[in-house]
Simulated scan of single mutants.
Amino acid sequence: MLYRLPGLDDEAILRDYVQEHYDYGEQHISASYSLTSMAYGDWVEKIKRCAETGEGESGRSLVLLCFDQERLVGLLSVRYELSRELSESIGDIGYGVRPTERRKGYATIMLRHALDICREKGKTSVIVGCYKDNVASARTIQKNGGVFIGENDNYTKGRPSLYFRIDL
Rank of each mutant, 00 (worst) to 15 (best):
S87G: 07
G96I: 09
Y106S: 03
E85R: 14
H113C: 03
E101S: 15
R102M: 07
K104T: 05
G91H: 02
G74T: 13
E85F: 05
I90N: 03
R98Q: 13
R84N: 14
A114P: 01
I90M: 05
E85K: 13
M110Q: 05
R71N: 03
L86M: 04
R102K: 09
G74S: 13
G105H: 04
P99W: 00
M110G: 10
R102Q: 15
A107T: 00
R71I: 05
G105N: 03
R103V: 13
I93C: 02
S77V: 01
L72N: 12
L86G: 01
L72D: 12
L76G: 02
R71S: 09
T108D: 11
V97P: 12
S77G: 04
K104C: 04
R112W: 00
S87F: 08
E81F: 11
R79T: 08
S83P: 04
L111V: 06
E88V: 11
G105K: 09
E101W: 13
A107F: 00
R79W: 09
S83A: 09
Y80C: 10
R103Y: 15
S83T: 13
H113Y: 14
Y80A: 13
Y95F: 04
L82K: 08
S77I: 01
M110Y: 05
S89T: 12
R79Q: 15
R98A: 14
S89Q: 07
H113K: 09
I109G: 04
L111T: 04
G74V: 07
E88R: 15
R98N: 05
L86D: 02
G96V: 06
L76E: 08
M110F: 12
G91P: 00
Y106E: 00
L86P: 02
D92R: 02
L111Y: 08
R112G: 11
R84W: 14
D92Y: 07
R102P: 07
R103F: 15
L82G: 08
E101N: 14
L86A: 02
I109C: 03
G105D: 05
K104V: 03
H113T: 10
Y95C: 09
L75H: 12
P99H: 03
H113L: 06
P99E: 05
A114K: 01
